[in-house]
Design a protein around this nucleic acid. Structure first.
Lengths: 192, 192, 192, 192
DNA sequence: GATGAATGAGAGTTCATTCAT
DNA sequence: CATGAATGAACTCTCATTCAT
């Protein structure tokens, strides 16, 4: 008889939006961006195709929100203060990377699958770079303190190593020599 | 005009099949799997759409054959003889990796773009593993000679590093500090 | 908050209905019938989509009511009294036609765009004819006074001229030689 | 057993293309551009939706071809030689207009329905103008010979009159005083 | 073996309409 | 009376696949 209050509507929207994003993550991860259809996502979320467009303006939009939101969630752990940088923090960071992957394996699968689809990369490149650049910068300034002559290059190098290890871990977590790799990486940077 | 007195049909078939695969590789690497159409491949090969189905049973079938063939082409350079192993060869291998990527950038993009799609991977995983395992093995025995205590683990570690560097290079070849990374990687393994 | 003690519901209904029609006219003339959405109309009226269906049974229904109302609005200027007919009035009428078009260009575009769609026309034809026939009649009796032997035919002829000029003016108002055509038309009928 | 000859294919394409255009004309005329769907056209032509895109690249394309082709067909009768222009030709032209309409009533209905849909006009305006401008020009130069001070404006005026008469004739051919209007128009231009 | 016209399923997207609240 | 989330059918368009020739 009465209209819903605007608070009720907000609540519905927030929950439904989250539901769709979760479904999208699952489907994108399983099928990749192009093979995943809006129908797949809708069916995974248990709603109609049409409703998705009440919450997102396009398939690309869903991808962006999924990825950028996830990136932010993941990478906020990585930003650390260059002022008070210690060797210990560096070691922690390497361990943290693998911990994160253990917690959110499917997220990471998606991110890597996206990274490797060049056309998809084009869609999110800008948003992604806005997140990554400050991290690489804070990274670089730490590496400068550690004595590296070209901290920017070293930051990219280190990032690439982490990517490679992560990727291999994700593809086959059971057989990957995680402990060995963590220690090996630490030894390269003379970490305890 | 039409029904020709038939001899050497087999030969014609083999050549046509090869022609199609070459065309498919070009188109797949240029456009990616999903955006490449059978019409594109047919036109690149200079034949009709219909004829393709005389040689392959589906678009996926073409992809599988293309991918596995490509893997073989690329990875045959990586298997080297542990008997006659030298430090120089190891250094060469690192350079070779980046050279290969430079030569066949779009190749690699294709492979990476396919690699992480769960469903596609399932299709080619077995074929892929048959190629990769001997490489990792030949690798491990080299590393054993270099004095590594756990050569199998070190082989996976090194492979992961190469993956990470490759991936980052492919994503953004222009800005990637390629020379720096090659030298840095060499220095880690004490290579000249 | 919700169920209000009810009085003068009728009054509210009438005002709301009018509000919706005004919004619909604005949106229809701006976007055309097919490109205008119920959401657009609702938003223009500052109400919810759902509420519109409390007052009209469909989008077509809104269009019909809008169109017929608009015709009445526009054509009421055209009926003039044969008793007190003067040559001046005739001249005024020609000028009035172009003035109306200038004032309500988007109105006219809408009407013309709808007019020739067979199925839509069938819906409003009767209503339209009820408005047009008396106009043609009042017209004819004026023309009879001016000495035309077949005033009914001349009325249709004159109406057709006005239609043609209007149509061409609406299609391309900037380049249409409006003043020339007004004077030319007047000269045909020997008007000052 | 043998592939069709390219002549056979050409023949099929020409016929099918024509079939689709005829169907499109019918459907566009009945429903208007926006309300007409590709499915409608396909079903009218007795073919699948998909096939239409084998012959036309979009719905807009179909519209353009339908209209421009029709315009060319119709208007080629109108171009006459300004060098050898005679009063008789002018009179013929008026009669010709009505004859053409009698022959191809449904064509004309479409053209007028299109002319009145402003958004559709935007699609074809350029193509249409390319056809109309030379006609109006050849017209204007005739009118100049007849002594009109502003032949360009007079050409547009005369064109508008023809439009208006045509439009009224098309809407209701049975009751329209065709003969009266032809003679009336001739008398305006002092034609025999 | 070879052709390309033809199909049909499905893609992303829009939107009039319904309905629980 | 009023809301907007939700549906579902329809939209334009694409394309892997089939098939008569």
């Amino acid at each position: 008889m009465c209209p819903r209050t605007s608070h009720q509507f907000e609540d519905i929207r927030k929950k439904k939006r989250h539901l769709i994003l979760e479904a999208a993550l699952i489907v994108f991860t399983k099928k990749g961006f192009h093979s995943a259809s809006i129908a797949n996502i809708a069916s995974e979320a248990g709603i109609s195709k049409g409703l998705i467009y009440n919450y997102f303006k396009s398939k690309e939009d869903i991808l962006k929100v999924t990825l950028v939101g996830g990136f932010e969630h993941i990478f906020k752990h990585y930003r650390f203060d260059p002022e008070n940088f210690t060797i210990e923090q560096f070691g922690k960071l390497i361990e943290l990377t693998f911990d994160l992957m253990e917690d959110d394996l499917s997220y990471w699968k998606l991110y890597f699958s996206i990274l490797m689809q060049t056309d998809v990369m084009e869609i999110i490149q800008e948003d992604l770079m806005n997140i990554l650049i400050p991290i690489l910068d804070s990274f670089a300034s730490c590496l400068a303190k550690m004595g590296f002559k070209k901290p920017q290059d070293e930051a990219r190098f280190f990032g690439a190593l982490l990517d490679g290890l992560s990727l291999n871990y994700i593809i086959d977590p059971e057989h990957f020599p995680k402990e060995y790799c963590i220690n090996r990486l630490k030894s390269i940077y003379n970490l305890p």
